[in-house]
């Protein structure tokens, strides 16, 4: 009996570990690479909507394990997290949502703690705290030498152009075969 409870608990733990942040879904068909490199050998071709366990991240790549136990690397941008890879973090609809918690059945309105809309609307300016913030300000010279010590080096990188006005079409179908990318 005790044995039973332990396996049950372990199963629960494993299930919890595999959910949310640690799993993802492919938004398009993608090759699973042996290494985080485009010209690395392909382990297999993964179809769109494959569920993956996330192992690690490096550069533009994510190390994953497939449901069939294969390991390898896919591009980060081919993966979406959240429930079933769908919409994920919702929008306005979630405001003031009421949820019922576990066995107690207590109803609580979420969003009551922390920095809520009401708290910002009712806030009184705290200039003493602003003065404190100013004391932590550092010069760009100091920040540059600190960054150098941390091993960071400046790069010359042009901005990627973004055309405003295309936002309404945010429901771009990333799974469309026209939009495939390795």
């Amino acid at each position: 009996m005790k044995q039973h409870w332990i396996s049950l608990a372990l199963a629960g733990l494993i299930a919890a570990g595999a959910s949310w942040a640690d799993s993802g879904t492919l938004i398009r068909a993608t090759p699973l690479k042996q290494k985080p490199l485009l010209d690395a050998a392909t382990v297999s071709e993964l179809p769109a909507n494959s569920r993956l366990n996330i192992v690690a991240r490096k550069g533009a790549w994510m190390q994953v394990k497939t449901a069939s136990g294969q390991s390898g690397w896919v591009k980060l941008l081919n993966v979406r997290t959240g429930s079933a890879g769908s919409g994920g973090g919702g929008g306005l609809g979630t405001l003031g949502k009421v949820i019922t918690t576990g066995s107690s059945g207590t109803t609580v309105t979420t969003g009551v703690k922390g920095l809520s809309a009401e708290q910002i609307e009712n806030a009184k300016p705290n200039f003493a705290e602003l003065d404190k913030l100013k004391q932590y300000q550092v010069s760009s010279g100091s920040a540059t030498s600190s960054a150098r010590q941390a091993g960071l080096g400046a790069q010359s990188v042009p901005y990627v152009a973004y055309t405003r006005g295309s936002a309404s079409g945010s429901n771009t179908d990333a799974t469309s075969p026209m939009n495939r990318r390795p």
Binding site: G90, G91, L115
Partner: peptide, 28 residues
């Protein structure tokens, strides 16, 4: 991706989610 994995009903993300496009839309 980490933000997208947070349950939208979680009170700690309500203001951020209501004032930003959904994380997956930003990723797209």
């Amino acid at each position: 991706q980490a933000l997208s994995a947070i349950n939208p009903a979680d009170g700690t993300v309500q203001l951020m989610f209501s004032t930003h496009p959904a994380p997956n839309d930003r990723l797209n």
